[in-house]
Design a protein around this nucleic acid. Structure first.
Lengths: 343, 343
DNA sequence: TTATTTAACTCACACGTTTTCGTTTTAGTG
DNA sequence: CACTAAAACGAAAACGTGTGAGTTAAATAA
């Protein structure tokens, strides 16, 4: 391997000082045109690239943001991540990624590892376990150590920081309203996210829509679980279409929607004639089912972009961070496909 | 914010030298037990963490690996990524991620951005466009600059480096053999990846299996396209089950498998009685379809772990890298579900 | 001619660590 | 007590970069 070109090497070979090289490369007016050209051409020839680590050390910023995701296999998080990555790159930032796997310990560990100059700030969605345990100290410490955090999707009231969320409550109200308006009387709520902030909000939206339409709440139509596994376990005994006269289903996440879809068809019912389904979903698969699923789409990439923008703005805002934290809401969209009837 | 604790600060407050603090914290034998304890306790109190950037600058390694993925929304890559992240973390490495979006330009740009000390090496899967253009200069330059590369899945013969692949050819032979043994006479090949190395290998495996079983190759049963979009466009006119007497389908990727699944059912045929289907797949959805799809599973996480291990071993191998590059093959597994008949 | 400006460049330090080498202190020995 | 050796610590350089303060030499002004 060729030795990596450094300012020092170039300086020696051209018989000038290191500072001259540095200034010439940054087009400083203190350097004469001829030497500038000489240095710049030589640097290009040697394929010189400023050592990023040294630059970071001087500037005390790494231009890198740490992203902590609960689960990259969930297409929603993958979409958000792609948005973060895109927006960050456009503004000259790199992205370092850790996966908490829904574990509080891993979340803390990841933040700890990165909180030593490696990154300038965090973008994260709170892990399942963290929300269950109400343990937010690590977030507050990071912020106190001048490492700003932007939370998305799963956020916490208890932590003061920028946030990007979806209007979960309103979207749920809207979706359930649609079911009601198209004739559903007995709408089931399927939650496999009942431990998370977003799951709760969507469930509340369901309740609100019923209330708005003066429909009595029927607890036997409501299923709340905290994970896909728990959901799969309880679903068969819960899901009695005929007995419960279910004619509409609102699911807070794609896993539940698909399970319902499958069960409805297997039971010999027609979608959407007998049973309508709407679910929150971000995978590519809702539209591949037959009949395809109507979904509440969350615009994952936009969420990611907004989060990155928020964080970078804060990082580059020199006006001594007044903690005027912002919560940005990304509107959802009801994508009507074949599992719902038209109004 | 509290000022970040540094060696200098601690040294001043304890009236010792910077070197003493450094040595005390690293448990050097040159420091007496009492001062060690004094320093260590004070450091813990002040929540001291060695500035990673400074450490990197000294050690000339960042303990960070750059990962370049063609598309994080593809569940296969997401799985591989989770494996990389896990294995890297276990060995004390961070992961910086870029998404090439199947673009050569973005791939080059990403590598360029990171090749300045930010990372110690790359793990990547070659972008679609890069494979089409046969443009591998950027890989070779990185390797020449002492930034090792490990390629996975989509690799290139033209680049000398460690690789992790799946036995695409053998897996395809095996899968198609299974179809033949269970009675299929007219097996269609659906490729939506015909530009990539893996797509080609799987197609060749299909041909080989026919040859091994002395079945004549029928070009009208073979469909080759270079993207999902192109596939979707041509599929309807290609897929004539009755006319072509198709009784078996081998798909090189999940998208094609699902399209076939849908089309078969829509045509009024039964799976697997009339038509059997096997596809390469990594999504969670193959098993959710009704009937569920039999798939060739690629063990994405294992691929990622192997890649990380290979790279880190090379990074930490002090024995002046003899380029004894290794290609590790991760065995696939034929997951028999409902879309195939039992032997 | 001498003083003053200006252009062009060099010096020296800083960022926070680690590490080598040198210096001081303590303990041990004759 | 003097000398040696080990133990404990400090000074300084280095990693590669950026920057304000100096330095030189030439050009201009008085």
């Amino acid at each position: 391997m060729r030795p990596k070109a450094t300012l020092k090497q170039i300086a020696k070979e051209l018989n000038v000082s290191v500072s001259t090289v540095s200034k010439a490369l940054s087009n400083s007016p203190e350097i004469s045109e001829p030497t500038k050209i000489k240095v710049q051409e030589f640097a290009k020839l040697k394929n010189y690239k400023p050592n990023n680590i040294a630059v970071n050390l001087k500037s005390k910023r790494s231009k890198t943001i740490g992203v902590i995701l609960p689960n990259i296999l969930n297409p929603f998080f993958a979409k958000v991540f792609s948005g973060i990555e895109k927006a960050a790159n456009e503004r000259g930032y790199n992205v370092i990624t850790c996966i908490s796997n829904e574990s509080l310990t891993k979340e803390i560990h990841a933040m700890d590892i990165l909180s030593n100059g490696t990154i300038d700030g965090f973008i994260l969605s709170i892990s399942d376990e963290t929300q269950k345990e109400h343990e937010f100290k690590h977030f507050k410490e990071a912020i106190a150590d001048d490492l700003p955090i932007v939370m998305f999707d799963r956020t916490s009231e208890d932590v003061n920081c920028d946030k990007v969320i979806v209007d979960d409550f309103d979207s749920a109200v809207y979706a359930v309203n649609h079911l009601i308006k198209t004739g559903c009387k007995n709408i089931a709520l399927l939650s496999n996210l009942d431990n998370t902030s977003v799951g709760k909000l969507r469930a509340e939206g369901y309740l609100q829509a019923l209330k708005d339409n003066k429909i009595a709440i029927n607890e036997s139509l409501i299923m709340r679980t905290q994970s896909n596994e728990e959901f799969d376990e309880q679903f068969p005994s819960f899901f009695d279409i005929k007995g419960k006269k279910i004619d509409g289903i609102f699911a807070v996440e794609e896993h539940a929607s698909v399970a319902a879809h499958k069960a409805v068809l297997k039971g010999g019912f027609r979608i959407p004639e007998d049973v309508q389904i709407i679910g929150f979903a971000d995978g590519v698969w809702s539209r591949r089912l037959t009949p395809s699923l109507s979904t509440v789409s969350q615009h994952g990439p936009e969420i990611g972009e907004a989060a990155a923008e928020l964080l970078i703005n804060r990082l580059e805002d020199k006006t001594e961070d007044g903690p005027d934290y912002e919560t940005r809401i990304i509107k959802t969209e009801l994508r009507q496909r074949e599992s719902t009837r038209k109004l």
